[in-house]
């Protein structure tokens, strides 16, 4: 499975190159670009990033594996990330978790059989004032109740 950046991204990369004193700084932006283009980051894509950043592919791998948001394997169409940290826990996150697990019939870390939903628990997402909360792909759903989660899941089905 080979990888190459699409044309829009190549233009973006050319612009970004001017903003950094070293091409090494492009590592994170390019990892993001790959993930947005392909959904996850393959070893082939890391080889490609290594060319732009003048770093060995192993260094790209080392960086990519440090950050929890980089997916090194495909995830479901809707990636549910439920916050598990203290303010959300104090405000009823366990009930939300139990409801999602039951409704989708999956455990944390699993993807539904139809590939629609992946469920993970994540640490504080900076929405403690509107806890409990979850992020699905890039959208925040805050001040969750079971009723709201029920509607959200239905709409995404």
């Amino acid at each position: 499975m080979s990888f190459s950046f699409d044309e829009t991204n190549i233009t973006k990369i050319e612009q970004l190159q001017k903003r950094y004193p070293s091409p090494k700084a492009l590592t994170l932006p390019l990892l993001w670009m790959v993930q947005e283009q392909e959904g996850f980051i393959s070893l082939e894509a890391m080889e490609e990033i290594s060319k732009y950043t003048t770093r060995p592919a192993m260094e790209i791998y080392k960086t990519a594996t440090f950050y929890t948001m980089f997916n090194l394997a495909p995830v479901g169409e809707h990636h549910i990330q439920l916050c598990k940290t203290l303010s959300c826990a104090l405000c009823g996150k366990e009930d939300i978790l139990a409801y999602i697990k039951k409704t989708l019939d999956i455990e944390v870390g699993q993807t539904t059989k139809d590939g629609k939903f992946t469920l993970t628990q994540v640490e504080c997402l900076g929405s403690c004032g509107t806890a409990p909360m979850m992020q699905i792909n890039q959208t925040n759903y805050e001040s969750l109740t079971i009723e709201r989660v029920e509607k959200i899941l239905e709409e995404l089905q």
């Binding site: 700084a25 994170l28 950050y67 929890t68 980089f70 994540v122």
Partner: peptide, 22 residues
């Protein structure tokens, strides 16, 4: 410059390492 999910990158020198691509 977008981080990618690592609390420690808020610490300023870790942040700069991350900004350098590491």
């Amino acid at each position: 410059h977008r981080g990618a999910g690592a609390y420690i990158c808020g610490e300023k020198s870790a942040l700069l390492e991350s900004l350098e691509g590491k």
